[in-house]
Design a protein around this nucleic acid. Structure first.
Length: 265
DNA sequence: AATTGCTCCAACCGCCAAGGT
DNA sequence: CACCTTGGCGGTTGGAGCAAT
């Protein structure tokens, strides 16, 4: 017996979303919250697959999305996190407030890959393309490593934790203390002067946590970790301290409205 | 101005894991 | 314990828009 289709495909729209569809989806989620994606399209009066609704919401309609170009710091953070996590876009996105995994994946494929290649680095292994030494280039910050073995970065998390000590040796600016603890309660390990180190360390801990059975998490403000505690994207002031729905998710009040929506009409 | 080639990104597809029964 | 449903993820693709010719 095969898998049942995620939805009835015979009577669903595909392709670009229209403004009306977006409004229906927004209105429904605003009223009922994110819930059962399978039943949402019918309930919301949308001729769409539940998956499609989810994707549209997460990647485009969510009010907490940050639009616009990636900053240089975001670039470097993505590179470091990719070296640490591989193609775990969702984990990487969890470290970049307001960015989605899809957005980061696209950005990686269109910009950062090229950037690394121009630096003479293999985008997957973060090692020199010329097959030089075991260290990835003259600038340590540009070679976060984690791929000491020539394995596909997308091959999963195995070996990540064991590679951490190597990372630490190779990249002293990275704080890779992987002990399972609460990064937000370790301010001395993540001083504002080292936002990237803090974020990557927290990412390493989270990557570790994803492969372990650790279930206790607490909210952490990425903006503070990134060194932007006073920026308008800092959510730690607005989030309820007890909110644990998404530990690392950047949240902005829904009522702030939608911005930069594109429609194919 | 028209055509061609390229870039970028929204959206789709298939697979997997978690949770429920 | 096996099966099923559902949500989530990463890889891939199609097409709109832009640049070059």
């Amino acid at each position: 017996m095969g898998r049942s289709p995620c939805c009835e495909k015979a009577h669903t729209n595909k392709g670009a979303w229209t403004k009306e569809e977006d409004q229906r989806l927004i209105a429904y989620i605003k009223a009922h919250g994110e819930g059962c994606w399978r039943s949402l399209p019918k309930a919301a009066g949308l001729l769409r697959c539940g998956k499609s609704c989810r994707l549209r919401w997460i990647n485009y309609l969510r009010p907490d999305l940050k639009r616009g170009n990636f900053t240089e710091e975001e670039d470097e953070l993505i590179i470091k996190l990719h070296g640490l996590l591989g193609n775990k876009w969702s984990l990487i996105a969890g470290r970049l407030p307001g960015r989605t995994d899809n957005e980061i994946k696209n950005y990686w494929n269109t910009h950062i890959k090229r950037k690394l290649l121009s630096r003479g680095l293999d985008p997957q292994t973060h090692r020199p393309l010329n097959g030089g030494g075991p260290f990835a280039g003259p600038q340590q910050q540009e070679a976060p490593g984690g791929a000491t073995a020539a394995k596909p970065a997308s091959s999963g998390d195995e070996g990540r934790s064991s590679g951490a000590s190597l990372d630490e040796d190779r990249f002293p600016d990275l704080n890779l203390d992987l002990s399972i603890s609460l990064p937000c309660h370790s301010p001395k390990r993540s001083p504002p002067s080292e936002p990237l180190a803090a974020a990557t360390a927290a990412a390493a801990a989270e990557a570790e946590a994803t492969t372990s059975t650790s279930s206790y998490t607490q909210p952490i403000c990425l903006c503070c970790h990134l060194g932007f505690p006073t920026s308008d994207t800092c959510g730690c002031q607005t989030n309820t301290p007890n909110s644990q729905s998404h530990v690392y998710r950047y949240i902005r009040p829904f009522e702030e409205g939608q911005q930069h929506l594109n429609y194919s009409s």
